[in-house]
Simulated scan of single mutants.
Amino acid sequence: MAKSLWQPPRLRTAEENEEERRATWLELFYDLIFVAAIAEVSHYLNEHVSLAGFFGYVLLFVPIWWSWVGATFYATRFDTDDLGHRLLTLLQMIAIAVLAVNVHHGLGESSVGFALSYVTVRAILIVQYLVAGYHIPAARGLTTWYATGFSIAAAIWLVSAFLPLPWRFAVWLLAFIIDFGTPLTAGKLVAQIPPSFSHIPERLGLFTIIVLGEAVIAVVRGVAKLEWGASSAIVAVLGMIVAFSLWWIYFDSVDGSPLRAMGVGRMGIGLTWLYSHLPLAIGIAAAGVGVEHIIISSKTGIALPATQRWLICSAVAICLISLAAIHLITCTLGTTRRRKILAAYRVGSAAFIMVIAIAGGALSSIAVIGLVAVACAVQVVLALIATHHAQPEPSC
């Protein structure tokens, strides 16, 4: 079906069929560029397995994730899928591709290109919000708030391109605070025009699938670098168990009930749910890199190097703590007490895994990944037990 050249933005969340909203083909195609971006930032971590390297990986990961969130939350409210929107989406995809190209040296010689490409992504989003506010008076308060906050953050990113290292990165952190704080301080405006309660959980689930896919690719890549053997095969299988367990305990409970809190102005709950997906994505992708390194180390027959042990343990622990936060506020998982129990399971397992990181200096690669896999698999079993016959809490 031919698309009209241009349609004014409309308020999608006010439509009667909003409950039937699903990801569009354009959104799914848009996600593909983030497959490349996640692959590049994971490759950066793969070559910088250290504490400093991990912090650098996080610093590069956040703009990628926030770019995706920005486009997704705009689309859930105002997407028209006309020719104009498609062309702006194409421009965003090109800017994200440039962002991905600059990731490899994004904290060094390519940091200017990284910053400018991110500014371009945000500038397109700001224009979209201004146009939406112009055509939809009911949404003008929200769109103006978002456009203002995001513009300030984008301007700071632009200024950072002219600053020397490492001051450039300090300015990035300031911009992040403004970017993330803009939705947090939009309380009543978001309550008037909340995001789609069906569309956003699906979209975040799809992004989680992207990072899980990168983790699986990392496992395959690790095995492909070696001659096939029993040790590498065992580590690969255990790595897949970790990924599958994380998939299970996330997607068995993925739900937009915390997001509904935004509809009554309780931004803290809704944004805690949303922002918890950031460390979850960071942890999943990092865990894939960790498994890849463990597969290679499994051929040496000696204790797993400390940097690699800390990487896999910290990454999986971050995932479990993020899931604890998500499950604690997901009302469909049952009563407050039941959700606290589930969260305690996740935190307890994360603590056990960190003990391995601290005290597992003599453990082999198979022993480390084996214990991590068991800790994750136990979460699946406990989740099945805890959620059996669970009923949503009416107060939610």
Rank of each mutant, 00 (worst) to 15 (best):
L45A: 06
K188S: 10
T307P: 01
R346A: 03
A52T: 09
V372Y: 08
G70C: 03
W66F: 14
F34S: 00
A281Y: 13
H135V: 00
F114V: 05
R140M: 06
A350H: 05
L246C: 02
V381I: 15
T208L: 11
L320R: 01
V98R: 03
G370M: 02
V190D: 00
R221I: 09
L163V: 15
A315H: 08
D255Y: 01
L83G: 13
A132S: 14
R339K: 08
L11R: 07
V216N: 04
P279T: 08
E40V: 01
E15N: 04
V235P: 00
A343W: 06
G360H: 00
G53W: 02
V159F: 11
P279R: 06
R12H: 14
H104I: 03
P137V: 07
F197K: 04
V58P: 04
A373V: 05
H389I: 10
T300M: 12
Q308L: 04
L59N: 06
R10M: 14
R22G: 12
R260D: 05
P8I: 09
A139H: 09
P305A: 13
R339C: 03
L45G: 01
V101W: 14
G263A: 11
S4C: 12
G70T: 01
W65Q: 07
Y345F: 15
L320K: 01
V378K: 07
G113E: 10
T182E: 12
W157Y: 14
A138N: 03
F176K: 03
L246F: 03
H43D: 15
G256N: 05
E109C: 02
T300W: 13
T208M: 10
G149K: 01
F150S: 08
A139S: 13
V69I: 12
A154D: 06
D179Q: 15
L371C: 07
A71I: 02
V347Q: 11
I282T: 06
A287Y: 11
F180E: 09
P164R: 05
I385Q: 09
T120M: 14
A52R: 12
S314L: 11
R86H: 13
L88H: 05
Y146E: 04
R21G: 05
L59R: 08
C376E: 04
A36R: 07
E109F: 03
A138W: 06
I217H: 11
A306T: 04
S231T: 11
S276P: 01
R77Y: 02
D31C: 09
G141V: 09
A37D: 04
A36E: 14
G106I: 00
R221A: 11
M1S: 11
R346N: 06
P392E: 08
Y118F: 15
H327I: 00
A161M: 13
P195Y: 07
G370C: 02
G283T: 03
S110H: 15
S111P: 10
V41M: 04
F150K: 05
L32G: 10
R168H: 11
V291P: 00
S253N: 08
A191T: 00
S245T: 12
A325L: 12
G268R: 13
T330C: 14
M267D: 02
E47Q: 08
G301E: 06
F54H: 03
L87G: 03
L173Y: 15
Q92N: 13
S245D: 04
F61S: 02
L90M: 15
C319A: 13
W247T: 01
